[in-house]
């Protein structure tokens, strides 16, 4: 049973989130402003905090700063502000994730799962490294591709990919952080020349994204750089 603290001044939203998370088997604690949140954190050990930014008394940003001085627990910011600037500044302050209102409940749950898992399993990371003796395991964050077993997992969930998709993902993951254009991907992944195939690489990549990303429109791993190419984000 993991404890999750949901902080928002809108009681209905807190209630709704509580319902979703309880279904997933989490124990939910509620707070309606920043000060209350800090109090709750001191009272009980939390595994994740969902924090609204705009709140009375003490807003989400100030609360986040306070949390970060003492704790390393994952914090998901929740805000009506959807601008990139807000997201980036939130993430820079130490938030682990950022969800804009109005959110898709499934996405919220998926992100909570992902962050909790990562936080709880942090200690087992070294085990993974040990397993990767042959250099056949490629990973970025919670995205893991095992070339021996041909298995791809995200947040420990196995992802079913076609052979082409698997090859593309393997190539990008192997060279994570680097940007490849469609033709570069084509040249590196396909061995024989097949012009027709090149045009559908973009389609394959969208499919991969839809399979591995919680929100394919805001991908965490497989990023699209428009007019330049694609890359797998390098996440520890």
């Amino acid at each position: 049973m993991y404890n999750i603290l949901v902080v928002d001044d809108d009681k209905e939203i807190v209630k709704a989130i509580e319902i979703y998370l309880k279904r997933e088997g989490y124990n939910v604690e509620k707070a309606y402003d920043g000060l209350e949140a800090i109090k709750k954190l001191e009272e009980k050990e939390m595994h994740l905090v969902i924090l609204d930014i705009m709140m009375p008394n003490q807003d989400g940003i100030a609360t986040l700063e306070k949390i970060r001085t003492e704790r390393a627990i994952p914090v998901i910011l929740l805000s009506a502000k959807s601008e990139d600037y807000d997201k980036i500044s939130g993430l820079e302050l130490g938030a682990d994730d950022y969800i804009t209102k109005p959110f898709n409940p499934l996405e919220l749950v998926a992100r909570v799962n992902s962050n909790v898992r990562r936080y709880v399993k942090l200690g087992s990371m070294q085990n993974n490294d040990k397993e990767n003796k042959n250099g056949k395991i490629f990973k970025s964050g919670e995205l893991i591709l095992n070339d021996e077993t041909k298995k791809v997992t995200v947040d420990e969930k196995e992802i079913k990919l076609t052979a082409t998709e698997y090859n593309i993902l393997k190539f990008l993951l192997k060279n994570k952080g680097k940007v490849y254009s469609i033709s570069e991907i084509y040249e590196n992944v396909w061995n024989e020349d097949s012009i027709a195939a090149e045009n559908i690489i973009a389609v394959h990549i969208r499919h991969i994204r839809e399979k591995i990303e919680i929100n394919p429109k805001e991908p965490k791993y497989l990023k699209v750089i428009w007019g330049i190419g694609y890359k797998i984000e390098n996440i520890n």
Binding site: D10, E12, I13, A16, I17, Y20, A80, K101, P102, F103, N104, P105
Partner: peptide
């Protein structure tokens, strides 16, 4: 957006 969030969620 805030009330809309509740509407969508409920």
């Amino acid at each position: 957006k805030t009330p809309l969030t509740s509407i969508i969620n409920y």
